[in-house]
């Protein structure tokens, strides 16, 4: 979701294997699975209601009763971190899936067509990457108004470009290979050649980037939440929680730090999973 580079083809983390699968895939997968479970049924795991205020324990340090402490309203930080999974995982999926689909389709068409379509697309890419993405998203949200739906729109308007760029580059390579010519000599339609032949060979980097992008989406969602432009208080969302705690950093660090750790762990899960996926999907020669 920021300046993109091609995902690494092979990292040292990918070389460890467990039961024939990349270890990164398994570890990342476990983290993501746990995150999904927390996101779907947070109340099974949260010890308290995330909105319940306990005026007898305001800004309480971590203890057995409140393992992550409480915030300035006496709300249990652990319960809020757990309930925030619902919103933050939703951000990860909703903000990136639309751009993935649109970007893959546009990228495949542009990469295959080349010529004028490619030149126009190139200028769109230039326009988008010449701004820091956060600035662009904030600008769009500022126009549309704060809130999650507007954030999805703002991200979607920009983010598809990165997927499209990855896919169009790959399709450009693949379309020159003989198997594409073989399809043309067979009289297959361009749509069949693009989506049935070229795309399966060109989509891997986009899928891997999708995982990274979900981590970045959580980060962006939290940033906007922190700035008051994304999820709105009193909703439990990690960025909102970090903002809640910023005035108490010196006295009650736990309000901000535990949501921060949740962001790191979830982001790492997506990254590891994407890494493992890249390893798994690499074409055998």
């Amino acid at each position: 979701m920021r300046a993109i580079e091609a995902p690494p083809q092979r990292s040292w983390r990918s070389r460890f294997k467990v039961a024939g699968l990349p270890a990164t895939l398994i570890v990342g997968g476990l983290v993501l699975f746990a995150s999904l479970v927390l996101a779907v049924v947070p109340s099974l795991f949260a010890p308290y209601d995330p909105a319940a205020m306990d005026y007898n324990s305001i800004l309480a340090a971590p203890s057995l009763a409140h393992p992550f402490g409480t915030d300035s309203f006496g709300r249990d930080v652990l319960s809020r971190v757990i309930h925030a999974y619902t919103i933050d995982m939703q951000i990860a999926v909703f903000a990136t899936t639309g751009p993935l689909i649109v970007g893959v389709i546009v990228g495949a068409l542009v990469g295959y067509a080349g010529g004028l379509a490619e030149s126009i697309f190139g200028r769109i890419v230039d326009a988008v990457i010449s701004f820091p993405q956060l600035v662009l998203v904030i600008a769009i949200v500022a126009v549309l108004g704060p809130g999650l739906t507007n954030m999805y729109i703002a991200v979607g308007v920009i983010d598809w470009v990165f997927f499209a760029r990855l896919v169009s580059g790959e399709v450009k390579v693949q379309k020159r290979l003989d198997y594409a010519d073989a399809g043309r000599a067979m009289g297959y339609t361009p749509m069949r050649i693009i989506f049935r032949h070229l795309l399966p060979n060109a989509i891997t980097p986009a899928i891997v980037y999708w995982m990274t992008d979900m981590a970045l989406a959580i980060l962006l969602g939290s940033s906007l939440g922190y700035l008051g432009l994304g999820a709105q208080p009193p909703a439990a969302e990690w960025g909102v929680q970090i903002a809640d705690g910023k005035n108490f950093m010196a006295t009650a660090w736990w309000i901000s730090v535990f949501p921060g750790i949740a962001i790191v762990v979830t982001g790492l899960g997506f990254s590891l999973f994407g890494d493992g996926l890249a390893e798994l999907m690499r074409t055998k020669k």
Partner: peptide, 15 residues
């Protein structure tokens, strides 16, 4: 019909 020179790139690796 045509048969191609390079036996490695003339077949779709995912089919």
């Amino acid at each position: 019909q045509m048969i191609f020179q390079d036996p490695y790139s003339s077949l779709n690796p995912r089919m």
